[in-house]
Amino acid sequence: MLKETPSQTAGPYVHIGLTPNFAEITGIFPEDAGKTLVNDKTPGERIVIEGRIIDGQGGVIKDAVVEIWQADHLGLYNSPYEPRGHADSNFTGWGRCATDMQTGEYRFETIKPGRVPFADGRIQAPHANLWIVARGINIGLQTRLYFSDEAEANAEDPVLSRIEHRARADTLIARRAGDAYTFDIYLQGENETVFFDI
């Protein structure tokens, strides 16, 4: 077996590579990859996911990039490795957003995902998968976002129930206000978000 190429930090200038238009390097790519997940025809409930990433000193991180990967409204992933059928072609399922250089906010306009089975056949609660890179992060952080208005599904979710301390599982629940869910990610401290080794 070969060894996986070691990870290295994305560094402070990650935007040049991942979101060059955001970094005001225009004219190379017409649009930053992952800028939109939905279009006018995407079925499903329109939602916004937004939040900030907070470091161990309580500071908001303004140089990170967040990627999201989620199923469509029926729970299908827009991927050749989705064996259960074809996801809706008007939903990419993948997005990328740099945290704002002033406010530190990231934001995705998307749809509420459907449910996806767990390894043993149980059905997971609706969730989105997040990956976070930045200066000072040596290997991309993997986490999941669940939805506060899915309490019943969350209660039986196989991943959430693996987390021994209930309070820690709560770090994965995005809070709904109107059509927007807020999901703040804490890298350290009492409220440290659960990150996965998956």
């Binding site: 992933y77 064996p83 089975p117 767990f118 996965f196 998956i198």
Partner: peptide, 8 residues
């Protein structure tokens, strides 16, 4: 925290 890969 680890768990087995799912379709996600």
């Amino acid at each position: 925290i680890a768990f087995p890969n799912t379709l996600s």
